[in-house]
Write a protein that binds this DNA or RNA. Sequence first.
DNA 1: CCCCTCTTTGAGAATGGTTCCCATGTCAAC
DNA 2: GTTGACATGGGAACCATTCTCAAAGAGGGG
Lengths: 138, 138
Amino acid sequence: MTLRMTRQRAAVTELLDDIDDFRSAQQLHELLRGRGDAVGLATVYRTMQALADAGEVDVLRSADGESRYRRCRERGHHHHLVCRSCGATVELAADVVERWARQVGADYGFADIDHTAELTGICSACAARQRSAAEAAR
Amino acid sequence: MTLRMTRQRAAVTELLDDIDDFRSAQQLHELLRGRGDAVGLATVYRTMQALADAGEVDVLRSADGESRYRRCRERGHHHHLVCRSCGATVELAADVVERWARQVGADYGFADIDHTAELTGICSACAARQRSAAEAAR
DNA sequence: CCCCTCTTTGAGAATGGTTCCCATGTCAAC
DNA sequence: GTTGACATGGGAACCATTCTCAAAGAGGGG
Ligand SMILES: [Zn+2]
Ligand SMILES: [Zn+2]
Ligand SMILES: [Zn+2]
Ligand SMILES: [Zn+2]
């Protein structure tokens, strides 16, 4: 029952301190290897799953079906706005959405409502980069 | 470029007429086989992908990573409320969410905002069924 | 410190949904 | 009909994730 502190788990949580985007288990595995903290891929998967179950990381499924993980500042429930180009991520409190979910559940007689709501877009830095690239090609 | 009408594509679109829940490609394949309309699994995948690209079906990824498809009444953009127990589905117009997405995009300087927002819950029929099952076990 | 026990690890195999390959079938334009 | 581009399907390939199980190691009680 006691979660033991191992070199591997320490390496993963340290890595998460230095990362601000959603990353897949495979990317984390590669990053760990790059730092010299070799950790088995299966262990990365297990650790991220445990952290997700404990609510310490958020999980997002990318379009290609990969799970990506991120340790957010906000521990409680929230949503995300992610740049499709560079991955920059903003954490969002969204009372409007919480109210909408509850209201819709009540309207249709559904109990135990759960919801997901995620935004993607192009951040201003990436938009600027794209504009100047387009100009250079002119 | 021209989409040809084949026996297989006809069988799939006919099947979709008779279904009101989100179903996986494999489930659709099995259902077609059950009707006597044998269609290759690869073809079901290709057809659903094409229909999704054309906006004729909506795609939802279940928790276990399977893509599930549904031909909705509403052709345009909308969201869903799905029963986790029986799969019953309600289509939702959600202006609140659309406004929220636009507003957040503007607030953080993100362009080309896209969003997903899906609700799950237990429909009243399933809730009643669960209540009487719990009572019988008492 | 040293055991002893029980958790954790990791390499490779297994799984399972989805896509690819390509020889063969078939729509539809002329 | 003839023809050629498009579609089909069975099985192999792909790939993220999970499983297996023997070996390593955390950590509490002596
Ligand atoms: Zn960006
Ligand atoms: Zn929320
Ligand atoms: Zn239900
Ligand atoms: Zn919407």
